[in-house]
Design a protein around this nucleic acid. Structure first.
Lengths: 161, 161
DNA sequence: CTCTTTTGACTTTCTCTGACTATTCTATCG
DNA sequence: CGATAGAATAGTCAGAGAAAGTCAAAAGAG
């Protein structure tokens, strides 16, 4: 018979089919499966780690919870190289903004971060003749992209201040 | 289930949407939520501390009150111009990093945001002869600073990028 | 036997309350 | 008028209760 851990893993993944993020009570779940609460931690540690593409947040005390967040499907390295390719040697302002928007949509950056990036590639940030502007903008954006994905790899926070 | 503390926090923040400063009666608020008055202190201590960007003033006795002040408006309007001045027409990488660090210390930006800013003004982001680099870096940093303080003033995130 | 799973005792964190303390205002007394 | 007692506030702190986390030892699978 499949191990309890496998069953719990499947249960959680079923719950997450719809939403990329769910919240649950550790004790309730443990009770549901008639196991020790720490069993839930075991499942989370072995099947929902960052390596597996998940991030766990939790809170203790009254009203505590465990939140499981599924990170993006594609390995980020992939998206990064895609975006870097799209940036290329030079890029105009509109295209740069589109890329930043995409990062925001994917929740890879917060609104504030997106606005910051936006301001770094704006026309007036690059005080140069137009042709050079696009080259420069590409360089700045490339750097920022790499920074964003460095954060992702390290599993750092994207949301909360 | 949202905890009482979360509910009270939200209630207060809603009250503060318009004004950066509100005044309330501890006992009334406690009564409104049917909790012990000291619960209000707990919420203030855990969600409206200086770290969170708020200052609490209060007075006991008849006509007592609790005043909650959101920091950042006045002094920072000043700080922005100070920093812009410090950036000037051109700026080297080390100085730029110091300014970004200061923003982080003041909690005006998150760690991620600071890293992003850092990456935008790095040497390799500005593919130009050194003299021009500093001019360019100043322009990019100026733009980002203005963005940071725009957020602060509104205290809110706008969604268009 | 070795590796994974499961459990349970112990720890840490968060919330909430109540008893006690401190401060401020107001009314009354001398 | 000033002193003072009492009422009206708010603050502090320790403790109870409610989660979740940790870790090592026992149990089970292959």
């Amino acid at each position: 018979m499949a191990q309890l851990s496998d069953t719990i893993e499947k249960f959680i993944k079923d719950l997450m089919e719809q939403d990329a993020q769910i919240e649950l009570r550790r004790n309730e779940l443990a009770q549901h499966f008639g196991c020790a609460p720490s069993q839930i931690n075991y499942v989370l540690a072995t099947r929902f780690s960052v390596d597996h593409g998940y991030v766990i947040e939790s809170r203790r005390g009254g009203g505590g919870y465990v939140r499981i967040v599924r990170m993006r499907e594609n390995p980020e390295g992939n998206l990064l190289s895609l975006l870097l390719q799209r940036v290329g040697a030079e890029i105009d302002e509109d295209s740069a903004v589109a890329i930043i928007k995409h990062l925001l949509d994917c929740k890879l950056v917060t609104t504030n971060e997106a606005l910051l990036m936006r301001s770094a590639v704006a026309q007036n940030a690059l005080a140069l003749p137009i042709s050079a502007k696009n080259v420069l903008r590409a360089a700045v954006l490339r750097n920022m992209l790499q920074q964003v994905f460095r954060n992702v790899e390290r599993g750092e926070q994207h949301d909360h201040v």
